[in-house]
Design a protein around this nucleic acid. Structure first.
Length: 593
RNA sequence: GGCCCGGUAGUUCAGUUGGUUAGAACGCUAGCCUGUCACGCUAGAGGUCGAGAGUUCGAGUCUCUUCCGGGUCGCCA
């Protein structure tokens, strides 16, 4: 039987006592971590979210029946009363923060018994994630998970603190919203009152926060759930949390400056790390050219080198034709790695880049006894000399080449770069490397849809001088968009928005919307823009991803209390699930078998 | 939708070329023990080898199908 508190009040958390509290009568409550039963003397490590305190059941000192103490088991929830006592010199445990003291129990209440847990509540045994998620309530008791949740909570608290102190208002936006085209798939919610019509869960509060700017709330923030019905990844969940921010009467530099203050505040508060400001900025173009990625990890070198002009006229047809057809040939020099990658491992790397669409990868091995390479025979001595000079090739180096259309080259070499750095141990895990990527293109061309799509979103403002180009020269139109990158991960992104009705209409037209479609989908925004809209812009951070990186975790699930697994289901509750026929009828829905 | 990895006791794992009764550690149960803290000692329980089919005299091991989990490409304004 579970006992009730009957007036007992917890004095404090387990680890909030020190030698100064000796002889103080205290009441502690928590879970039984371990029991060491010596007969007429039983030690129990009592656990709460702060840590452990040893409590001692001595048959001679207990004021109540001793036998309940003998029957304590893992994960029982108990309350104990008794004085804090100093441990004898030889029984001090220097592994515990509370190792100098213990509680000499006079009274015990068993508040709840527990079945033997399916796995042990400690960080020592790595339990299969399937199991952990099914019994998430037990998994979350483990010290590492308690810590993750604590840090996550501190990050949002620090963000709230900074933003509130700087005049931002926390305003909620609806979860039941209008489905819009563009972007990710929506999670849909059927309307009972309007059969056949659906709400969408927000992919982000983007349009709502813009409307709040039009309403005069010139500094807004919200820590808010967002939903995208796309496939999961180690760093991607279908529902995730954004720190969402929008400001009026600002341009790019104002937003960047404010956010640098925010980021520095979070790192100081949560990790006691000083971030050097201002952060570096790199253009999208440079990021791609040098790192093959718009979220470059700049903690190490291995930069890409463009050799298109050298191989363009060579007899190596593969490379020459790639350049002729508008692609490029680029290289990475793995300095001094000639011996670290024997032929078989080079073949594995060639297979690796094929994942990203590369048809192959060439290489030059700068061996002590001469150059080894499958491609050098196609080049003249001049061309070869130029290649070696451009790539800074020296004896001992290993140089990789990929030639293909733009995206494939960047994806292949960008990811090869990361893989090489990981394999070679070039990454300093102790640094927080933050930078802005700026000057994104407005559009990217979608091969699938045969049209331009918004690289950021359709409300992103082009640069002042590129306003015309969105129609006349979309390829070369650049946007007032920026991403903030931490250790090679995009942790936030935003833009200055379009605050002019005509420009917004033109943008939608450039994206292939007819006037009718534009009004049908975004009419509320186009209409609102007409009634006095301040220039505005903002940013949204992925809180989960930020927490994951700050904690050095490899899975976003480790910083989310109740995450979904890869097929977007929840092993704890078994969501999603079938619903009753009655519910379907009410919603006017029929399921096709 | 494609590719790769994994699934053996409650947990984490081992299991040789296909060969007797599938093992270890931790956990669990019972007993003993007044200074343990990875407590110790004694005894014990615990297995649909993810599921199904096939090959074989014989399958945890080989083949096929399938389920579950992870990673990844596509996808993710």
């Amino acid at each position: 039987m579970s006992e009730f508190l009957q007036g007992w009040k917890r004095t404090d958390y387990c680890t909030n006592f020190t030698v100064d509290d000796v002889e103080k009568e205290v009441t502690l409550m928590g879970w039984v971590q371990t029991r060491r039963d010596l007969g007429a003397l039983i030690f129990v490590d009592l656990r709460d979210r702060t840590g452990l305190m040893q409590v001692v059941f001595d048959e001679s000192k207990l004021q109540t029946d001793f036998s309940p103490a003998e029957h304590l088991r893992h994960e029982f929830v108990i309350a104990v009363k008794g004085p804090i006592v100093l441990r004898d010199e030889e029984t001090i445990n220097d592994k515990l923060p509370t190792g100098l003291i213990e509680v000499s129990v006079r009274e015990l209440k068993i508040l709840s018994r527990a079945q033997t847990p399916p796995f042990e509540v400690d960080d020592e045994t790595a339990v299969r994630e399937e199991k952990r998620l099914k019994y998430r309530y037990i998994d979350l008791r483990r010290p590492s998970m308690q810590h993750n949740m604590l840090v996550r909570s501190r990050i949002s608290a620090a963000a709230r603190e900074y933003l509130t102190n700087n005049g931002f208002l926390d305003i909620e936006t609806p979860m039941l919203t209008k489905s819009t085209p563009e972007g990710a798939r929506d999670y849909l919610v059927p309307s009972r009152v309007h059969p056949g019509s659906f709400y969408a869960l927000p992919q982000s509060p983007q349009t709502m926060k813009q409307i709040l700017m039009m309403s005069g709330f010139d500094k807004y923030f919200q820590i808010v759930k967002c939903f995208r019905d796309e496939d999961l990844r180690a760093d991607r969940q279908p529902e995730f949390t954004q720190i969402d921010i929008e400001m009026s009467f600002v341009d790019v530099d104002d937003i960047i400056e404010m956010n640098e203050g925010l980021i520095a505040h979070i790192f100081k508060k949560v990790m006691d790390v000083d971030i050097e400001l201002p952060l570096r900025r790199i253009s999208y173009r440079d990021a791609m050219d040098r790192y093959g990625s718009d979220k470059p990890d700049t903690r190490f070198g291995l930069e890409l080198v463009n050799v298109s002009d050298i191989v363009e006229k060579s007899d190596f047809k593969v490379f020459a034709s790639v350049v002729k057809n508008g692609g490029s040939v680029r290289a990475i020099n793995a300095k001094g790695c000639v011996d670290k990658f024997p032929r078989r491992q080079i073949d594995a790397l060639v297979d690796f880049v094929k994942i990203y669409g590369a048809k192959g990868m060439a290489w030059i091995s700068m061996k002590e006894d001469g150059i080894q390479s499958p491609i050098t025979k196609f080049f003249t001595q001049d061309e070869l000399d130029a290649l070696l000079e451009r790539t800074d090739a020296q004896t001992g180096d290993l140089i990789f080449f990929v030639g293909d259309k733009g995206k494939v080259v960047f994806d292949s070499l960008g990811n090869l770069r990361l893989k090489l750095a990981e394999t070679l141990g070039l990454i300093d895990e102790s640094v927080y490397d933050l930078l802005w990527v700026v000057d994104f293109p407005v559009f990217e061309y979608s091969e699938e849809e045969k049209r331009y799509t918004a690289m950021h979103h359709p409300f992103t403002s082009p640069k002042d001088e590129d306003a015309e180009k969105i129609v006349t020269d979309p390829e070369n139109a650049y946007a007032k968009a920026y991403d903030i990158v931490l250790n090679g991960n995009e942790i936030g992104g935003g833009s200055i928005r379009i605050h002019d009705t005509k420009l917004q209409a033109k943008m939608l037209e450039a994206l292939g919307f007819s006037e009718e479609e534009a009004w049908e989908n975004f009419g509320f925004l186009l209409e609102a823009l007409k009634y006095g809209t301040p220039p505005h812009g903002g940013i949204a951070y992925g809180l989960d991803r930020l927490a994951m990186i700050m904690l050095g975790r490899e899975s976003i699930r480790d910083v989310i209390a109740f995450p979904k697994v890869q097929n977007a289901s929840d092993p704890l509750t078994s969501a999603p699930s079938k619903v009753s026929a009655k519910q379907l009828v009410e919603l006017g829905l029929k399921i096709e078998e």
